[in-house]
Nucleic acid binder design. Structure first.
Lengths: 138, 138
DNA sequence: TTCTTATTAATACTCATTACAATATTGTAT
DNA sequence: ATACAATATTGTAATGAGTATTAATAAGAA
């Protein structure tokens, strides 16, 4: 099974009709777990898809989020970032280089939604920041 | 001791020179625990300070954050929000009205920084989202 | 095919934030 | 007080992410 067909099926599992553009975006997300911004996705794909529009990348990611195939991260005040891994895990952003990394060794309890009579709590996001090793020459 | 003088001293504790503008902004933050945006602060103060510039509000908040008097929240993808309460607590944003509220009944352990040999982790932010009671007519 | 709908593309627009330059204020030394 | 230097404030312009709109294209059904 070639990778594109695999991605096709992946999209179908989320009830997303797999167009060429959607498949390309999803394939990029699956193969590049870097929590990319819209711009990074667009810049990565446009050389091989010269007609690709940035608007399409926006629309595609909105759709992926709506269908639950992707999580939008609110950790970088500059840009929205997207993560294909929707399982419970936290993120770290380096304040120097701006890269976002996964943090998996976080107690799963932390992702339980707290009880509240004031709010119907639906999502959690646990975000860390600091400096990555590359940025402190270590 | 009048409120302004109190705010003066509050700023001094963070090594912030208390100008008229800074005092007004801090006083607003102390008296309005609503995690306001820059615009909300500006709109609230400008009637009584007609010459106030929005740039000053930006500069002031940047300074407050730098001095540790205020925390910038990254929870609302639309705007930055600011919180004078720098103690360990989480936040909830309503996806309908956009208001941000404090969540205090979160296990203090959740705010401990995890060990990592890849990153020097310096801050945590725990953000919840969903729908508030006002927005679901309840 | 032809009609209809969904998707993509291109462009224009909005609006938060930043950059920059000019003015005003404050603190200090004389 | 006055002069000077440092800091703070203001106004305007620029940037750039995200959104809205509309036209063009592709896909699907009849």
């Amino acid at each position: 099974m070639n990778p594109t067909l695999q991605t096709h099926n992946y999209l179908l599992r989320f009830s997303i009709k797999p167009s060429v553009q959607r498949t390309a975006v999803m394939e990029f997300l699956l193969n590049n777990r870097i929590h990319p911004t819209i711009d990074e996705i667009y810049l990565a794909l446009s050389p091989n898809m010269p007609t690709l529009s940035k608007t399409t990348v926006y629309n595609t990611l909105d759709l992926f989020v709506e269908k639950g195939a992707v999580r939008a991260l609110v950790i970088d005040e500059k840009n929205a970032r997207y993560d294909v891994d929707t399982s419970a895990h936290a993120h770290f952003m380096c304040n120097s280089c701006g890269k976002v990394h996964d943090i998996f060794n976080v107690n799963p309890m932390f992702f339980q939604l707290p009880e509240s009579d004031k709010f119907k709590i639906q999502t959690v996001e646990i975000s860390y920041s600091g400096i990555c090793n590359e940025c402190q020459g270590n």
